[in-house]
């Protein structure tokens, strides 16, 4: 009898020790998981986020850009954008002062047609950055084709958990050299972005304000660009008339000289 009592105590103590060890391991797993963020598939997330602005392989849409200065609305610009794949973009300028102009992007090559010159003029990437909302903000919206993403962190923006991606330009046709991009964790929907030049200077920031569903595809409806150089300036981009279309390759010919 005296020999079984210590054995029983030992058994109970061993079991207790084992339970404490399991409990400790369990706690470590939970704590470490909370401390270490899950690294998302950044390339896949970026591609999915592009689908909110490029819902189909070939489509058209209208863009209205309203500039604001100290909160007061100013100039309004209108564009018709035709996009085919990730490399071909044709933008027709529809504002009264710019009617007849168009912009063509074929990969890294760009032309602008001015009715005064009656011919397409080759332009450089730097020439494309004009105005509060640049032509690149309108025409170049496929970030997966132009940027290499890397994961930075996960953080909350308002009530929304977001991945923060650092996008580095991988081609000279990219509008900005670097973008910090916030994507909603649950569905990779863009939430906000910061745009940087080659010098590292923050030039603009954007908030993706409103979305709507078109033919089953959630699409961006409204985007606000904030000028980080002149802080009282901003532009609101409103997208409408989004529709899939079969677009002929002739529309994207670099020598096209039709005024409209």
């Amino acid at each position: 009898m005296s020999s079984t009592y210590p054995n029983r105590i030992n058994c109970i103590l061993r079991t207790l020790l084992l339970l404490m060890l399991i409990g400790f391991l369990f706690t470590c797993i939970v704590v470490c998981r909370a401390a270490t963020p899950t690294v998302p598939d950044v390339a896949g997330a970026l591609k999915r986020s592009d689908s909110y602005r490029n819902g189909w392989p070939s489509y058209v849409l209208n863009v209205k850009i309203t500039s604001f200065e100290s909160g007061k609305p100013g100039e309004v610009k209108l564009y018709e954008v035709s996009q085919k794949g990730t490399e071909k973009t044709y933008v027709e300028f529809m504002s009264p002062r710019e009617k007849g102009q168009h912009l063509l992007m074929l990969g890294d090559d760009m032309w602008v047609y001015l009715p005064d010159t009656s011919r397409p003029i080759r332009i450089t990437p730097l020439e494309r950055l004009s105005g509060d909302a640049s032509n690149g903000d309108v025409a170049r919206t496929n970030y997966a084709a132009d940027y290499t993403p890397s994961y930075v962190r996960t953080e909350k923006v308002g009530a929304e958990e977001c991945y923060v991606l650092d996008l580095a330009a991988k081609r000279k046709g990219a509008t900005y050299q670097r973008i910090l991009y916030w994507l909603r964790v649950q569905d990779d929907r863009p939430v906000k972005a910061e745009f940087y030049l080659t010098s590292g200077k923050l030039i603009k920031s954007a908030t993706f304000d409103e979305f709507l569903t078109v033919a089953g595809h959630p699409q961006l409806r409204r985007l606000t660009l904030h000028d980080e150089i002149r802080h009282n300036s901003s532009s609101v981009l409103e997208y409408s008339g989004i529709a899939p279309r079969e677009l002929p390759d002739k529309l994207f010919y670099q020598g096209r000289t039709d005024r409209f």
């Binding site: 009530a159 929304e160 409103e210 709507l212 569903t213 078109v214 008339g241 989004i242 899939p244």
Partner: peptide, 26 residues
């Protein structure tokens, strides 16, 4: 894996889906 969506994000998602637009005909 991912946590279940909170009530607020679910409400936002419902709000987004409610805004529908048919593509304009050519």
């Amino acid at each position: 894996e991912t946590p279940a969506p909170s009530a607020s994000t679910q409400a936002t998602a419902n709000q987004d889906n409610a805004a529908q637009d048919a593509p304009p005909p050519e």
